[in-house]
Design a protein around this nucleic acid. Sequence first.
DNA 1: ACCGTAACACTAACGGTTAGGGTTTAAGAA
DNA 2: TTCTTAAACCCTAACCGTTAGTGTTACGGT
Lengths: 206, 206
Amino acid sequence: MTVPTGRRERKKAATRQKIADTALRLFLERGYDAVGIRDVATEADVAVTTLFSHFASKEALVFEQDADFEQRLTQAVVDRAPHEPLIPALRHEIQALVRHCTADSAAPIWRMIDESPALRKYEESMRLRHAESLATAIAADPDLSRTATACGTIARFVIDAYSLAREAADPDAAVDEIFPMIEAAWEATRPTPPLPATGDDRDTQG
Amino acid sequence: MTVPTGRRERKKAATRQKIADTALRLFLERGYDAVGIRDVATEADVAVTTLFSHFASKEALVFEQDADFEQRLTQAVVDRAPHEPLIPALRHEIQALVRHCTADSAAPIWRMIDESPALRKYEESMRLRHAESLATAIAADPDLSRTATACGTIARFVIDAYSLAREAADPDAAVDEIFPMIEAAWEATRPTPPLPATGDDRDTQG
DNA sequence: ACCGTAACACTAACGGTTAGGGTTTAAGAA
DNA sequence: TTCTTAAACCCTAACCGTTAGTGTTACGGT
């Protein structure tokens, strides 16, 4: 599976990593606004243009690590056991993600983000992208036959839950309070609750 | 009530209006990215610094008109009749707002917004602000005794509905589909559904 | 008539970002 | 091995949104 990576790719990855590490260190040391792109480039010993060939913007330097957020959520949908209901699976994953970024070790980074309007805006856009790919994943699941609108809506709600819980005083309690709301919203979209049949069709379409 | 506005205030308002009009015209003529701040200032016959004393950013020039969005939503909460349920009132207002900005006359502006990442980001931040003030208005209503988390969550959901409906192929249908979900989520937050009492306590806490 | 100041102008700069153009070096073909 | 190609990188200079610093004008209250 793992193709033996050539020297070129390794060097490129190392450059990228050095830039990201340097940037995060400087940002935390001196504050995001007090550090210029030229500072980061100089300290990482690369040209400014090289920096921008690895990262699309200054803000992207901060969110380097959380690139797998999107994938974790969509995989929580795709990888769940057959007929395992959707919302609890998402709740579990959101819970884990919230805990991850409210951990003490991540606190300084998120304080920095909360204090910078530019970083907040950037994270908001990220969330929208995540909501869209989550919506796609939900819509693609054959077990859950819902309209595109319903999938898109639930995806937004789930991302909202992440955002709200992250900012809450007690993140775990917030998740506990928000997800029943999402569950109720999702229940309200059941396609047709028709003929009560064999009785063991529980968990389908959930 | 209306204090006879002096010449000074009138001139200031005229300058602001001229800047906004000029900007919107140029943006629609040549495209948002193709028009620089210096272009707008020159064409409006003001200094760049004057432009920025009226508008906080280039993006703010575009959203000049929709400044009352926030107020309309909070007032839909505050001004509703006693014991009138919350969600239908919000639904009515969102419906109106969505229709307003999907009208043919507004189409070019919103196309421009959708095509510019900067404008999209700006609108996302606006929505967050709106959600927060809506949450405050809901939390302040004594008829609806819900937790701060529940109010914040519902506020987000309502703003999501606006955003999703605005982008939907059939905005009215989207509203019709999303608001039952929000209604269900809101129902799930009823504080204590206890003693079935006199029977005419409908509409309270709704 | 006078003064304080709000509104505006001008210049110059800062900081993120990009274009243009050149150099090195890894990777693969001859 | 040697040659060729192109990816990765460098440097310079600029563009563009935005702000600071510093006046100038003219309205409004005294």
